[in-house]
Amino acid sequence: MQEANQTTVTEFILAGLSENPELQLPLFLIFLGVYLVTVVGNLGMIILILVSSQLHTPMYFLLSSLSFVDCCQSTVITPKMLVNFVTQKNVIPYPECIAQFYFFCAFAVAECHMLAAMAYDRYVAISNPLLYNVTMSFQVCLWMVAGVYGMGLLSATAHTVFLLRVIFCKAYVINHYFCDLFPLLELSCSSTFINEVLALCFSAFNIIVPVMIILSSYIFIIVSILHIQSTGGRSKAFSTCSSHILAVAIFFVSLAVMYLQPSSVSSPGQGKLSSVFYSIVVPMLNPMIYSLRNKDVKVALKRLLENISFFLTKNSFP
């Protein structure tokens, strides 16, 4: 009854990444550049895979799905973050804050399972290449991607439903640069026990299970690579997987630091720093890692540029 009579918060203020006035403009320029690279890189990867017939394979279908997730996740977080660098108070209404959290959670969880699906795809391709097209058929890929998005939507919906039951009346300044779960729960004046248990269970499942799938896949991949007789073949196989391992390591380590670390040993500054990696840095790195280290992508990009150049030249001289 006491909680019902209290005034609830209708809007929040995002504290941002840094309160130092001298850092606002440099940080704005840095993260604006990061966001532009992220959007151009991921949309470019999606378009390149869509228009290049040689990239119409399960591996690149999953990669285009990853690029879509990365682009959406960055768009959910970064524009509002950039506003915080050029305004004194970055106000976000309660409904918009909840919506931001919902979509961030959905895309973050989807990326966890998408990386696991891509690791399994590489395991099948390297360990059993003769049956690859059968094992990773178009129908199987569709079901995998549907499952990935399903897990993201399920987790986001569960968290958001219970977050809507929380009453915010202590304060309205979120000590973060976006509406994340734990910074929001710190402002609650009602019980958050269910939210914390739910967060621990879902975080453990959505982080540990994909990590175990990825580790298992790469153990089998390494064993299969070691059986390759050709030194060049082993080198090519390791090169194919190394970029994926790098992206996975950065993403899951930063995610675990934020969501699997006890609150007693974590700090707001550490939480913001780790959040920057999995919500902003990794979505920018993924298209660069997969394109710069991938021969097929380079060839497809070269052909596309040649076709565009030929088309423009042909239409310039009637």
Rank of each mutant, 00 (worst) to 15 (best):
L301V: 02
C179P: 07
C72I: 15
D296W: 03
S235A: 05
V276M: 07
S18R: 08
Q100K: 02
P268T: 10
V209S: 01
N175D: 13
V83W: 06
L304D: 02
T75Q: 13
L82A: 09
C72K: 03
R293K: 03
M114N: 08
E111I: 15
Q261D: 04
C179E: 10
I30H: 06
K272C: 09
C241T: 12
L29Q: 06
L130D: 13
L163R: 08
T135L: 11
A204E: 09
A156I: 08
V161T: 14
A119D: 09
N294D: 12
I245H: 05
T313Y: 11
L27A: 12
Y123N: 02
F205V: 13
S216P: 01
A171R: 15
C97F: 12
I214F: 06
N175T: 12
V223A: 06
Y102G: 01
C201S: 02
K170C: 12
C105W: 10
Q139E: 08
L14Y: 05
H227I: 01
Y132E: 12
C241L: 04
S254M: 07
L255K: 08
L154G: 03
R165Q: 09
S53M: 07
Y218L: 09
L62H: 04
G33N: 11
P58Y: 12
S217M: 08
I245V: 13
M45N: 06
Y60E: 07
H244P: 00
P26A: 12
I92D: 06
Y278A: 02
V166H: 03
S188K: 06
V9A: 07
M45G: 09
P283A: 14
Y177V: 07
V257Q: 09
A99S: 10
S243Q: 07
S64N: 01
I289P: 00
P262K: 06
V39G: 11
F28P: 04
T192S: 01
D70N: 15
C201D: 02
F252Y: 14
V76E: 13
K80A: 06
M151P: 00
M45K: 05
R293V: 04
L55P: 01
T87A: 13
L115D: 02
D180G: 13
V124G: 02
L215H: 07
F107E: 11
F28H: 15
P283Q: 11
I92S: 04
F252R: 03
V281W: 09
I77K: 06
V166Y: 04
